[in-house]
Amino acid sequence: NITNLCPFDEVFNATRFASVYAWNRKRISNCVADYSVLYNFAPFFAFKCYGVSPTKLNDLCFTNVYADSFVIRGNEVSQIAPGQTGNIADYNYKLPDDFTGCVIAWNSNKLDSKVGGNYNYLYRLFRKSNLKPFERDISTEIYQAGNKPCNGVAGFNCYFPLRSYGFRPTYGVGHQPYRVVVLSFELLHAPATVCGPKKST
């Protein structure tokens, strides 16, 4: 009989979020998941679920829940969905086509923008091939755009693969920082350890 609540607040209220190319993952297990707390949290810009209804989450049990978190621009949030393409979905964070879970995003301009620009948040701009679902690539190898080998030196046709967002408070909404948490639900042939409040007695 599990009684402790799942530590969703640790994920959602973290002081610093990860850059999207180096997205953070927390495994959540052996706890009671009260999703209504999240669902009623006012400032969400997006709360979209795939393969599961957000209002039914509290009735369900899962083997594991993974909480992935990172920061992207407002106009990139739409790429955090199954079957998407674009710089983020291709080179930074890719969801599987059969994704079961929820994508939760909110504007973090007050936290993550600075006058003069916040350059701490990076994304991958160049990559030889697209990421596989949930693949994480933190390499900083110089990207070779031409035929000539770069030998690890940036220059003509040789690019550092990461780019900084440089968030400023005055940017338009599409270019403002958004914090994103992706909850993915794993249902294995194993005992369920993460259940909603109704199922955990």
Score class of each variant (00 low, 15 high):
residue 58 N to A: 12
residue 86 G to E: 00
residue 48 K to W: 05
residue 188 L to G: 15
residue 65 V to N: 03
residue 107 N to A: 07
residue 155 G to V: 03
residue 53 S to G: 09
residue 184 S to M: 08
residue 92 N to C: 03
residue 20 V to A: 08
residue 163 R to P: 07
residue 194 V to F: 11
residue 57 L to V: 08
residue 110 K to M: 08
residue 65 V to A: 10
residue 14 A to H: 08
residue 198 K to S: 14
residue 20 V to E: 00
residue 64 N to I: 08
residue 152 G to T: 08
residue 129 S to L: 08
residue 128 K to M: 10
residue 127 R to K: 08
residue 194 V to M: 12
residue 189 H to C: 08
residue 55 T to C: 06
residue 130 N to W: 07
residue 184 S to K: 09
residue 159 Y to T: 00
residue 183 L to I: 11
residue 95 L to K: 02
residue 89 A to M: 04
residue 22 A to F: 08
residue 126 F to E: 00
residue 143 Y to T: 03
residue 146 G to V: 01
residue 180 V to A: 04
residue 167 F to G: 01
residue 57 L to T: 06
residue 149 P to L: 11
residue 101 G to H: 00
residue 43 P to V: 06
residue 118 N to F: 04
residue 126 F to P: 05
residue 163 R to H: 15
residue 128 K to H: 15
residue 170 T to P: 03
residue 182 V to K: 02
residue 15 T to D: 12
residue 113 S to C: 03
residue 164 S to G: 15
residue 133 P to E: 09
residue 16 R to P: 09
residue 184 S to V: 11
residue 34 D to A: 06
residue 85 T to N: 11
residue 80 I to V: 09
residue 90 D to F: 09
residue 77 V to A: 05
residue 185 F to T: 06
residue 30 N to M: 07
residue 36 S to C: 05
residue 119 Y to C: 05
residue 158 C to A: 02
residue 37 V to T: 14
residue 14 A to L: 06
residue 157 N to L: 02
residue 156 F to C: 04
residue 168 R to W: 05
residue 87 N to S: 14
residue 107 N to S: 07
residue 127 R to G: 07
residue 24 N to D: 14
residue 42 A to L: 10
residue 7 P to K: 13
residue 108 S to W: 02
residue 157 N to A: 02
residue 123 Y to R: 04
residue 72 I to V: 15
residue 90 D to W: 08
residue 11 V to I: 14
residue 140 T to S: 14
residue 81 A to S: 08
residue 132 K to I: 10
residue 69 S to E: 02
residue 96 P to G: 09
residue 55 T to N: 14
residue 109 N to M: 06
residue 51 G to Q: 09
residue 58 N to F: 07
residue 146 G to C: 03
residue 199 K to G: 14
residue 180 V to W: 01
residue 27 R to N: 11
residue 86 G to T: 02
residue 177 P to F: 03
residue 164 S to K: 09
residue 181 V to L: 06
residue 125 L to K: 03
residue 46 A to W: 12
residue 76 E to F: 03
residue 32 V to H: 11
residue 75 N to K: 14
residue 119 Y to K: 08
residue 63 T to S: 13
residue 196 G to N: 12
residue 187 L to T: 15
residue 124 R to E: 00
residue 172 G to K: 00
residue 139 S to P: 01
residue 11 V to E: 04
residue 92 N to M: 02
residue 79 Q to I: 01
residue 174 G to H: 06
residue 119 Y to Q: 10
residue 119 Y to T: 08
residue 140 T to K: 13
residue 169 P to A: 06
residue 15 T to L: 08
residue 185 F to H: 04
residue 104 I to W: 13
residue 30 N to F: 07
residue 157 N to E: 00
residue 34 D to R: 08
residue 92 N to Y: 02
residue 19 S to C: 07
residue 199 K to C: 13
residue 41 F to G: 10
residue 130 N to P: 15
residue 9 D to L: 14
residue 74 G to P: 01
residue 107 N to I: 02
residue 78 S to F: 08
residue 193 T to F: 11
residue 38 L to C: 05
residue 15 T to V: 09
residue 44 F to Y: 13
residue 3 T to W: 09
residue 26 K to G: 03
residue 137 D to Y: 04
residue 6 C to M: 05
residue 59 D to N: 13
residue 154 A to M: 09
residue 51 G to W: 04
residue 173 V to W: 13
residue 193 T to A: 12
residue 34 D to M: 06
residue 47 F to H: 09
residue 28 I to N: 03
residue 14 A to Y: 05
residue 119 Y to S: 09
residue 172 G to Q: 00
residue 153 V to F: 12
residue 109 N to S: 05
residue 81 A to Y: 04
residue 15 T to C: 05
residue 74 G to T: 01
residue 46 A to Y: 14
residue 53 S to V: 11
residue 111 L to Y: 12
residue 98 D to E: 10
residue 143 Y to E: 02
residue 103 V to I: 09
residue 99 F to I: 04
residue 89 A to G: 05
residue 85 T to H: 15
residue 190 A to R: 13
residue 4 N to K: 14
residue 88 I to N: 01
residue 139 S to K: 11
residue 159 Y to K: 00
residue 51 G to D: 06
residue 114 K to I: 09
residue 154 A to I: 09
residue 144 Q to N: 15
residue 135 E to D: 09
residue 152 G to I: 05
residue 166 G to W: 04
residue 173 V to M: 13
residue 123 Y to F: 15
residue 10 E to K: 12
residue 156 F to A: 10
residue 172 G to E: 00
residue 13 N to H: 09
residue 1 N to R: 11
residue 176 Q to F: 02
residue 79 Q to W: 01
residue 111 L to T: 04
residue 172 G to A: 00
residue 186 E to F: 07
residue 170 T to A: 07
residue 64 N to D: 11
residue 39 Y to V: 11
residue 149 P to F: 10
residue 64 N to H: 14
residue 51 G to S: 08
residue 69 S to V: 03
residue 20 V to I: 07
residue 98 D to W: 08
residue 55 T to R: 13
residue 12 F to P: 03
residue 134 F to P: 02
residue 6 C to L: 05
residue 1 N to S: 11
residue 122 L to T: 15
residue 102 C to H: 03
residue 16 R to Q: 13
residue 60 L to S: 10
residue 52 V to D: 04
residue 124 R to I: 01
residue 36 S to N: 14
residue 154 A to H: 06
residue 50 Y to G: 00
residue 142 I to W: 05
residue 15 T to R: 10
residue 72 I to G: 01
residue 29 S to Y: 10
residue 179 R to H: 03
residue 156 F to N: 06
residue 167 F to P: 00
residue 110 K to S: 11
residue 129 S to T: 15
residue 38 L to Y: 05
residue 184 S to C: 10
residue 146 G to M: 02
residue 95 L to C: 05
residue 80 I to M: 05
residue 186 E to A: 08
residue 111 L to C: 08
residue 150 C to N: 01
residue 190 A to I: 10
residue 69 S to M: 07
residue 48 K to P: 00
residue 60 L to K: 13
residue 40 N to C: 06
residue 45 F to Y: 15
residue 95 L to M: 09
residue 83 G to I: 05
residue 98 D to T: 12
residue 101 G to M: 01
residue 48 K to T: 10
residue 120 N to I: 08
residue 22 A to M: 10
residue 31 C to D: 07
residue 68 D to T: 04
residue 171 Y to R: 00
residue 40 N to S: 13
residue 59 D to R: 11
residue 127 R to D: 00
residue 10 E to N: 08
residue 188 L to W: 13
residue 128 K to F: 07
residue 20 V to W: 03
residue 144 Q to S: 10
residue 5 L to T: 13
residue 70 F to Q: 00
residue 134 F to N: 09
residue 166 G to D: 01
residue 47 F to R: 08
residue 11 V to R: 03
residue 48 K to Y: 06
residue 106 W to K: 06
residue 170 T to G: 06
residue 135 E to P: 02
residue 162 L to F: 06
residue 198 K to I: 13
residue 50 Y to W: 14
residue 143 Y to A: 03
residue 46 A to I: 13
residue 165 Y to G: 02
residue 124 R to K: 04
residue 131 L to T: 04
residue 51 G to T: 05
residue 4 N to S: 13
residue 102 C to D: 01
residue 174 G to M: 11
residue 187 L to D: 14
residue 147 N to Y: 06
residue 161 P to N: 04
residue 89 A to S: 00
residue 55 T to I: 10
residue 97 D to P: 12
residue 190 A to H: 13
residue 195 C to S: 12
residue 129 S to M: 10
residue 171 Y to A: 00
residue 46 A to G: 11
residue 4 N to F: 09
residue 148 K to H: 13
residue 17 F to W: 15
residue 196 G to R: 12
residue 112 D to R: 03
residue 117 G to H: 03
residue 40 N to E: 14
residue 77 V to Q: 05
residue 144 Q to Y: 04
residue 24 N to H: 12
residue 115 V to H: 12
residue 150 C to A: 00
residue 190 A to T: 14
residue 118 N to G: 04
residue 162 L to W: 02
residue 201 T to W: 14
residue 37 V to F: 15
residue 96 P to H: 05
residue 99 F to K: 02
residue 27 R to V: 15
residue 71 V to T: 07
residue 27 R to E: 11
residue 33 A to Y: 15
residue 89 A to K: 02
residue 201 T to D: 14
residue 130 N to E: 11
residue 177 P to A: 07
residue 35 Y to C: 07
residue 112 D to A: 03
